[in-house]
């Protein structure tokens, strides 16, 4: 599904990712954890195609395509989805109009016709129930005046509608109360299947109480410093990131070779 090899990324000429390797197979759920500033959000944004992030070397293969060759919308049309850490507000654009345009552009790229108004509304009403948002949110402007939790649920709603092949959730759990967290986790679990993969980018272990990952990686100083199974997340919760980040620093001091993890 996704193969990242020796990825180096700079933002405003500052290196953020420094030789990241990661392979995600279809059906797998990966969690990337790490302290602030380790490059977690950079990774999410690079995958989605944000233009002010520059790939200086390395490759990203997604479903066999060179990801860098695909435009932002082509990535989305190929089933890549990013749930934003801070979803933008768009005053004046109704949520339902936005959702419809999204779904139909993706359908259109697959050569499918647009859903008609009635089918679309029925589908959307069904999905919005799953994220415990009132139907009135469909008629409000996109994310405008939504609380933090409502914005995140709206991201999950989009994910449920678009049914991506690879969903990247960028700190979707941050700032959520426990009920919202459960709603988000239930939404993700509902989509889990053998041909769909997830990349959960998170600061905290608690999301992983509700979504069991197949792999957990720790990102430190722009590289994957450690990989393991869900036990690693628990270990991090107890001991913090210090022991890994220190090791990563020591490692980059003694060796310039990139640290790679074979999965």
């Amino acid at each position: 599904m996704l193969e990242i090899h020796d990825l180096h990324v700079t933002v405003d000429d500052k290196p953020i990712l420094k030789g990241l390797n990661l392979t995600i197979q279809a059906g797998e759920v990966h969690a990337i954890m790490g302290p602030n500033g380790s490059g977690k959000s950079t990774l999410s944004n690079v995958l989605a195609g944000r233009e002010d992030y520059e790939i200086t070397s390395g490759t990203i293969k997604y479903k066999g395509h060179d990801l860098a060759e695909l435009s932002i919308e082509e990535r989305a049309q190929q089933g890549l989805f990013l749930a934003f850490q801070y979803p933008v507000e768009i005053p004046g654009l109704s949520n339902i109009q936005f959702l419809k345009a999204s779904l139909n552009s993706i359908r259109e790229s697959r050569g499918e016709g647009p859903l008609d108004a009635i089918d679309f509304l029925q589908l959307t009403k069904e999905k919005i129930k799953q994220v415990h948002l009132d139907e009135s949110f469909l008629h409000r402007s996109v994310n405008t005046g939504f609380s933090g939790g409502e914005k995140k649920r709206n991201e999950i709603l989009q994910m449920l509608l678009l049914e991506p092949s690879l969903a990247i959730l960028d700190e979707t759990d941050s700032g959520l109360d426990i009920d919202a967290l459960k709603v988000v986790a239930t939404g993700i679990n509902a989509l889990r299947s053998e041909n769909r993969s997830f990349l959960l980018v998170t600061h905290y272990q608690r999301l992983l109480d509700h979504i069991e990952p197949d792999f957990v990686h720790v990102l430190a100083d722009g590289q994957i410093a450690k990989s393991g199974n869900k036990e690693l997340a628990l270990e991090l919760e107890q001991q913090g990131y210090g022991w890994i980040t220190q090791a990563a620093k020591d490692n980059s001091q003694t060796s310039t070779q990139s640290y790679s993890v074979k999965l």
């Binding site: 919308e73 989305a76 768009i90 654009l93 345009a101 552009s105 993706i106 678009l162």
Partner: peptide
């Protein structure tokens, strides 16, 4: 906002049209 719409599958032209309409709506 343009980036957000593009990550949802819309091309830049469609995204620009949608945001312009939102501004005037």
């Amino acid at each position: 906002q343009l980036f957000y719409l593009q990550t949802r599958g819309m091309n830049p032209q469609a995204a620009a049209q949608m945001l312009s309409a939102a501004f005037l709506g």
